[in-house]
Simulated assay, not measured.
Amino acid sequence: MIQDYLPGIKNGGSLQFFLMAGPCAIEGEDIALRIAERIVNITDKYSIPYIFKGSYRKANRSRVDSFTGIGDEKALKVLQKVGETFGVPTVTDIHESHEAAMAAEYVDVLQIPAFLCRQTELLVAAAQTGKVVNIKKGQFLSAASMQFAVDKVKDSGNSKVCLTDRGNSFGYQDLIVDYRGIPEMRAFQVPTIMDCTHSLQQPNQTSGVTGGKPALIETIAKAAIAVGADGLFIETHPDPANAKSDGANMLHLDLLEGLIEKLVRVREAIL
């Protein structure tokens, strides 16, 4: 369980799934704090362990003029302030090995993006920080093949590793979720997470802006809990249409509590 990796996490004794949630990218301090406050209130209400998510920089963008961030140090300090203000762990993604030590000074969990999950130097650098390492499964890989990514982190002296499914490539412009992957990755004895928003992306659009199907977030999340996912990853924003990144597949923040309430009932039904 994630509580074994992050013993200070709020609601750590809960039998509920845990939640990684927040905006796709850190857009500024005020909006990050507002989003975090809303989610903390919801997760406290339902006794769900919570990790605030926000990318300090977006390196994988379709177009060169796409938003990438407000500045590395500035965004990392926002993540740090969120964690200190609300007493919750924070997670951000890194893209190159030299970023690991820098980001580790500000956050509790380092996330490896799906496209980079086979990058040995990146995984080793993340592991050597001693932080929790959350590896997203590549859209091009089977669940079983993620054992090698887990081994790279553990063989580097860090047993605090999680895996996140975010769907598989289905043609050029769509993804599909194979729910067999959840129990397959849980068999590696690591917390396994379902990314309920990125798994609904529609990449490689002719406009250069990734599309999505946010109306199906509830479907993805319910199915993930039903097959035993330990945690959920959800990007959420109070105004997805005007979010700086990935607005097409984010959950509107106003819908989060209703979704969580339903998911708690699903979890209770399978325990």
Rank of each mutant, 00 (worst) to 15 (best):
S97W: 11
L175K: 00
V150I: 07
Q173R: 14
G231W: 00
H252D: 15
L259E: 01
A224I: 02
C196E: 02
E73T: 13
G71W: 06
I270Q: 14
L122W: 00
G167Y: 02
V190Q: 00
P183Q: 04
S66C: 10
V177D: 06
K131L: 08
S47F: 11
K137S: 09
S142P: 11
P89T: 05
Y172Q: 12
T219E: 14
L216C: 14
E184P: 00
V64S: 15
Y50H: 07
N60A: 12
I26V: 13
S207G: 08
I26R: 01
Q3D: 14
G28L: 05
A75M: 04
A248F: 10
S145F: 13
P7R: 01
R61A: 12
V78P: 08
H98A: 15
L33R: 01
V64L: 15
A144W: 14
P113D: 10
G28Q: 08
F170V: 08
A269V: 04
E261N: 14
M250H: 09
K58V: 13
F17W: 02
C117Q: 08
A241V: 09
A104W: 00
Y172G: 13
A75R: 00
K160Q: 14
L259Y: 02
Y56F: 15
K131Y: 05
F17A: 03
E84V: 09
G54I: 01
S169E: 11
D165H: 12
V177H: 06
A126R: 00
P191R: 00
A75D: 06
D178W: 01
L79A: 06
I217H: 03
G69S: 00
T129N: 07
E27H: 05
P240D: 04
G247P: 05
G22M: 07
G171W: 05
A144V: 13
V91W: 08
S14Q: 03
A269G: 15
G12S: 09
L110V: 08
N204M: 01
A187I: 04
G231H: 00
S245V: 15
G54E: 01
I260A: 06
D30H: 11
V124K: 10
H98M: 13
K77P: 08
A75N: 07
T164F: 07
A226S: 14
T164I: 09
K136A: 10
K81D: 13
I217Y: 03
V78M: 08
Q139D: 10
D174F: 06
G171P: 05
T120M: 06
Q201I: 04
H198V: 02
T206W: 14
E121F: 14
M250Y: 05
I176K: 13
C24N: 12
A21P: 00
L141M: 13
I217E: 09
K131P: 03
F188E: 03
K45Q: 14
L251Q: 12
F67H: 07
K137C: 06
R166E: 11
A221H: 07
P203N: 03
I182T: 03
M194P: 11
